[in-house]
């Protein structure tokens, strides 16, 4: 039971991190109609910015701020230089151009920082474990990630539903020409949305980089999971991204923790564990396939 609670919390934490990634991706797709493969690169930029600033200043929190700023700046720069020219192109061109951006980003990072992973140390404030009700010991930093995810989710709902910027974003999603005709500077709006998504990805990168390590290519597996999240949740929906991220995070973590054991109960021999872990590694994709069978547009997506 203790193991289960621990793993469920891990799943929640993983899901929140995926949400930070998927939120930007789904916003950019919903508002600009752009598929951005380079979103994972912005995640990596955030992680490296955090590691570098934290090492230079000795402050992890300055590092986190740096990850937001650096990823947002990189996002805005990329939007103005490249992405802006892709909005009216078809998805194929967008895929190829952002694939090219990945190559540039990852080789650029390798050139700047080398191939060796960097490690971040937690500040004393966030290090250590807390005892939860029920006697479960859980790392404080992972709890903090869950908290940050929840705050970001609330913040985004507030931003989209209650502020002027949010109204413009939703209007831009509905009808680009009309809101341009109403005098909204659509180009600036797009840059802001892109930078916002990038900042969230950068924050996710910094947080995950702290748990694991910071290295070139760290953004790519996460990017694909974020895709799975928004396929499940429905493209363009923040709510869908949140639900999808939690589903994917929970399924993946719990599947990997529990399936090998479950298989061992019904199957004999040493094969059981390997079959179990092989199936566990495919579980979220099976989940995705099921969602596609029932609702091809995703849980909260709109048709067409």
């Amino acid at each position: 039971m203790v193991l289960f609670i621990e793993q469920a919390l891990n799943g929640l934490q993983y899901g929140m991190m995926l949400f930070l990634m998927a939120a930007g991706l789904t916003l950019v797709f919903g508002v600009m109609g752009l598929i951005n493969l380079a979103h994972g690169s912005l995640y990596t930029v955030g992680a490296f910015a955090c590691a570098w600033v934290a090492a230079a200043t000795g402050s992890f929190f300055l590092g986190l701020v740096a990850s937001l700023v650096a990823a947002a700046a990189a996002g805005a720069l990329v939007e103005v230089v490249v992405i802006r020219r892709l909005y009216h192109r078809d998805h194929l061109d967008q895929v190829l151009a952002t694939f090219a951006l990945i190559l540039v980003f990852s080789e650029g990072t390798r050139w700047l920082f080398g191939s060796f992973p960097l490690y971040l140390t937690l500040p004393p404030l966030l290090a250590g474990a807390v005892t939860l009700p029920g006697g479960v010991q859980y790392p404080l930093f992972r709890l903090a990630i869950i908290g940050i995810g929840a705050v970001v989710a609330l913040g985004l709902f507030f931003l989209i539903n209650r502020t002027r910027l949010g109204i413009r974003i939703r209007a831009g999603e509905a009808d680009r020409e009309m809101i341009a005709a109403l005098g909204v500077d659509i180009e600036r709006l797009y840059t802001i949305v892109f930078a916002l998504g990038a900042a969230l990805a950068g924050l996710a990168g910094a947080l995950v980089g702290t748990i694991q390590s910071v290295q070139v290519g760290m953004g790519e597996p996460v990017l694909i999971l974020a895709f799975v999240v928004i396929i499940i949740g429905g493209i363009g929906s923040i709510k869908g991204a949140l639900i999808g991220a939690l589903l994917v995070g929970m399924t993946d973590v719990l599947g990997k923790a529990l399936l090998p054991g479950l298989f061992a109960r019904v199957m004999a021999g040493s094969d059981a564990a390997t079959v179990g872990s092989a199936v566990a590694s495919m579980l979220i994709y099976i989940l995705m396939a099921l969602v596609l069978l029932v609702r091809p547009q995703g849980l909260y997506g709109q048709r067409g």
Binding site: L101, L103, V104, S106
Partner: peptide
Amino acid sequence: YWKALLGLLLL
């Protein structure tokens, strides 16, 4: 770092 050059060319 040839892949970066390749990326720029593709772009």
